[in-house]
Simulated assay, not measured.
Amino acid sequence: MTDAILRPRRSVLYMPGANERALEKAKTLPTDALILDLEDSVAPDAKPEARKRVAAAAASGEYGYREVAIRVNSPGTPWHEDDLRAAAEAGPDAVVVPKVDSAATVHAVERALEAAGAPDRTAIWAMVETPRAMLDARAVAAASERLRVLVMGTNDLAKELHAEHVPGRAPLLTGLSLALLGAREAGKVILDGVYNDVTDESGFEAECVQGRRFGFDGKTLIHPRQVEVCNRVFAPSPEEADKARRIIEAFEEAVAEGRGVVTVDGRMIENLHVDDARRVLALAEAVSGR
Rank of each mutant, 00 (worst) to 15 (best):
E81C: 08
E39D: 06
A86Q: 14
R66V: 03
P44Q: 01
K27T: 07
A46L: 09
P44M: 06
G64A: 11
L34C: 06
Y65Q: 09
P75N: 09
A59N: 05
R85Q: 12
P75K: 13
T31V: 10
A46G: 10
T31Q: 01
S60H: 10
V68F: 00
T28K: 07
I70H: 06
R51V: 05
R66P: 12
D82K: 10
E67Y: 04
D40H: 01
S74R: 09
P44G: 00
T77A: 11
E24V: 13
A50P: 07
A46S: 07
N73L: 04
I35N: 04
D32C: 13
A57G: 05
E67S: 14
T77Y: 10
N73A: 07
P78Y: 00
D40Y: 03
R53D: 08
L29C: 09
V54C: 12
P75T: 08
L36R: 03
A43F: 09
L34G: 02
D40T: 00
A55W: 01
A56Y: 12
A50W: 00
V72S: 12
N73E: 08
R21E: 03
D83T: 03
P75S: 14
V54W: 07
L34F: 02
L23V: 02
D40C: 02
E20P: 15
A59T: 01
D82H: 12
G61P: 14
A55L: 01
L36M: 09
A58M: 07
P30A: 14
Y65I: 06
G61H: 08
E81Y: 10
G61C: 10
L38I: 02
A46N: 04
R21I: 01
A22G: 14
T28C: 03
D82C: 09
D83Q: 09
N73Q: 03
V54F: 11
K25V: 01
R51M: 10
G61I: 03
V54N: 08
D82S: 14
S60K: 09
L84N: 02
T28F: 10
V42D: 12
R71P: 03
T77F: 11
D83W: 04
K47Q: 14
W79Y: 13
K52P: 12
S74A: 14
A56W: 06
L36S: 05
L23D: 00
W79M: 09
V72H: 15
W79G: 04
L38D: 02
D32K: 06
T28W: 05
A43L: 14
L38C: 06
